[in-house]
């Protein structure tokens, strides 16, 4: 019954998608809108119109913000799915912190020192990539990944209890949902002030609003991405 329902839902979902696909211009067609006027418009007007010097950021966060909003929700859903699978049949919220009782091999002094030494620089680079994403290649996804990698490194070398201090238990769920939450917050702000979900101000005088909203979304994506990467790593028992 459950399976039949699943199949029915998938078929129902597939039909409109397949119909929409059949209406797309043929692949590689020179008359497809992407080649005739959309890409040139992005390249020519992007920086002044959408709020970021980097056209890629303009496209993913402003022109196609709705799509990216769905994307960050998918990333958050993937964490929920990992937790659902790994916690199935287990009691409690998440696995408790377990420091190995007998160290099979004490952590190397050299590695510990180097991780402590490089940690602040890695953090600075992650913040730079997030903040600078509106001028140069980078942004929330990339910077968040850099910081998530640092959390994994700290977990492996200095132990999970040290790494977990970066994400206090009380706010961890909120940090993990930071990307969709900030996206929705900015979207609703646009709805309230300018009448459309994810609407950015068009006025020339309000360019700083566009840029700062993009920045807020970038930071949200970065924080959420880092929290999700480390949560999945911890949940898979990466600390052992």
């Amino acid at each position: 019954m459950k399976r039949a329902l699943t199949i029915a839902m998938l078929v129902l979902l597939a039909m409109p998608l397949l119909y929409a696909m059949s209406q797309l211009p043929p692949h590689g067609s020179a008359t497809s809108p992407a080649y005739t006027h959309i890409s040139p418009r992005y390249l020519e007007r992007g920086p002044e119109e959408a709020g970021a010097e980097n056209v890629v950021t303009d496209v993913i966060l402003n022109y196609r913000g709705f799509d990216t909003n769905g994307e960050v929700t998918v990333i958050f859903t993937s964490l929920a799915a990992v937790l659902a699978v790994l916690l199935a049949g287990r009691k409690g919220d998440e696995r408790p912190v377990r420091e190995p009782a007998a160290e099979p091999s004490p952590p190397s002094v050299v590695v510990r020192f180097v991780v402590r030494l490089l940690g602040p620089f890695v953090t600075m680079f992650a913040v730079y990539v997030i903040i600078n994403g509106h001028v140069s290649p980078g942004g929330g996804f990339q910077g968040g990944t850099v910081f998530g990698a640092l959390v994994i490194l700290i977990t492996v070398v200095l132990g999970r209890s040290v790494a977990e201090k970066l994400q206090p238990l009380g706010v961890r769920r909120i940090l993990q949902a930071a990307a969709p939450l900030t996206f929705v917050a900015v979207g609703v702000l646009g709805l309230a002030l300018f009448g459309d979900y994810l609407a950015f101000p068009r006025d020339e005088a309000l360019a700083w609003v566009r840029t700062s909203w993009l920045m807020v979304i970038e930071i949200g994506i970065g924080v959420g991405g880092a929290a999700i990467i480390s949560a999945i790593f911890w949940q898979m028992g990466g600390d052992r």
Binding site: S108, V110, V111, V114, L117, L118
Partner: peptide, 10 residues
């Protein structure tokens, strides 16, 4: 210069 020898050492 810092990270590569550390990785080799580890």
């Amino acid at each position: 210069l810092v990270s590569s020898p550390t990785a080799g050492h580890a």
